[in-house]
Design a protein around this nucleic acid. Sequence first.
DNA 1: TCAACATTTCTTGAAATATTGAAATATAGC
DNA 2: GCTATATTTCAATATTTCAAGAAATGTTGA
Lengths: 121, 121
Amino acid sequence: MKTLHSDPALPRATETEALLRFSALSQETRLRIVRLLVMAGQNGMPAGTIATQLGSSDSRLSFHLSHLEHAGLVHSRREGRSIIYSVVFPALAALSEFLIQDCCRGFEENVNEGCKSESCD
Amino acid sequence: MKTLHSDPALPRATETEALLRFSALSQETRLRIVRLLVMAGQNGMPAGTIATQLGSSDSRLSFHLSHLEHAGLVHSRREGRSIIYSVVFPALAALSEFLIQDCCRGFEENVNEGCKSESCD
DNA sequence: TCAACATTTCTTGAAATATTGAAATATAGC
DNA sequence: GCTATATTTCAATATTTCAAGAAATGTTGA
């Protein structure tokens, strides 16, 4: 079984990246954008559609999308007059890796029993 | 193989919890506290030791520890005159679950190829 | 180039969060 | 009870982040 966080080819986020990404995800609108884009998958979604679905103003949404893009969590491409946003799955994966690796890997001798028995290996 | 994010007994964090926890982790000192406590494992570490190791003032550290505890990411217990802090591994696990589940589970028909081929299953 | 549409940038003010240092609280040992 | 140690709380200040709307920019298709 190949899992999201155990793929050795998938680098864990650095502390700086992790900080930037956690910060980006710690805002309600931005977290919802990410969840919306995850559901939209590789097709992505135009900025205007996202704004409509979340009931946010265009300018506010643009700000949040820039924020997410700067954090490397979403990617944009132009299609006609629309700009299509989509989530960067490897970035989410690396962030998970950052948490999980610290939780369960490399510190096996120290890890608590709850984690060891319920969640690891 | 039993993995951190695929254990059905391990509930995914709610959006509110996720927001609170992402927010807690998006601050340099707090992220370092969590990493330090992960390394300390179940034994945990006294507040004073954490402050010394991170070069932070006692009062500042106390504030950040309260913040992390309120977010459910760390737990405290008294031992003599020290208060020992330790990380709540299931909380980290649930947060990872929150990201990973949204990334790869429940939306298989939409998930992008990069995620599907590199990270899922 | 022009008109229409989509997105971004900028400004302002409000709200949340961080830092510092001093004072307060709690425990252990004498 | 008294003192030393460990940690937390509090008040004042500084910093960061957020929201809203107007104006500016960029793109398409005629």
